[in-house]
């Protein structure tokens, strides 16, 4: 499903954000990517999103070699991914319904389908009643739930979450993780970049630990490793 072979990323010459990384994530897996700031976690996500290109190495996603994707093929590739960010990235001038519908409009889905899929996605994240609200009227946890609804409404095969609980209190963080786990149970491959030790320790999923651009450990059912 996701495979990185000997991937290196240099932003400035000689400084490796990622250093000859090899990583394989199978279909339907739930993977935490952990590590300190600057360890290369976000670079990893951005490479998978094809927001960045590796300096060297190969990235295969769903059987596609990202290095060989033409510019015009990138949108279609990204439609197979759902992305959730720490800062939610919702459109403040639109209500919740329109924020989620936006993901479908962008992919040029017909209006009749939008009318079915948006309420369904809102129900999945427990916000069906708040479809008319604007992002600023919601709590951080609710906003992140909207972001998840937007990410899953196109039924992506892979869900990438970059610090999805970074701005949330523990209760809301758990709610978000529960939604991601539910998406995983429905068959979506989930990759979560996080600093949240409690969540990693309790959920006992596969944990890829990164440090200074290298993978220092990759274990199933592991906990958060302290770097001190």
């Amino acid at each position: 499903m996701i495979e990185l072979k000997d991937v290196t990323k240099e932003y400035t010459k000689g400084i490796h954000a990622l250093n000859h990384i090899n990583l394989k994530i199978e279909k339907g897996e739930f993977v935490f990517v952990v590590g300190d700031s600057g360890s290369g976690k976000s670079t990893l996500i951005r490479l998978i999103m094809k927001e960045l290109d590796p300096t060297s190495g190969t990235i295969m996603v769903n059987g596609k070699n990202l290095g060989r994707l033409k510019h015009r093929q990138i949108p279609m590739y990204r439609r197979g991914l759902g992305v959730v960010f720490q800062d939610f990235r919702l459109l403040k001038d639109r209500n919740i319904y329109d924020n989620i519908a936006f993901a479908l409009r962008v992919t040029e889905k017909p209006t009749r389908l939008i009318k079915i899929k948006v309420p369904a996605a809102l129900s999945l994240v427990g916000l069906a009643q708040k479809y008319k609200s604007y992002p600023q009227e919601l709590s951080g946890g609710e906003q992140q739930r909207v972001a998840i609804a937007r990410a899953i409404v196109n039924e992506p095969s892979i869900l990438l979450a970059d610090e999805p609980t970074g701005n949330l209190d523990p209760t809301n963080s758990w709610e978000i993780m529960k939604l991601l786990e539910e998406a995983n149970e429905r068959g979506t491959t989930v990759v979560v970049v996080t600093h949240n030790q409690d969540i990693v320790n309790q959920m006992r999923k596969r944990v890829v630990h990164m440090k200074k651009g290298n993978i220092v450990s990759d274990e199933k059912g592991a906990g958060y490793i302290h770097e001190d």
Partner: peptide
């Protein structure tokens, strides 16, 4: 700019 960035993450074509 933010909206455009989101569009790109979601998979909007250039023409859209």
């Amino acid at each position: 700019r933010e909206e455009i960035a989101i569009m790109k993450y979601i998979g909007a074509k250039d023409s859209f």
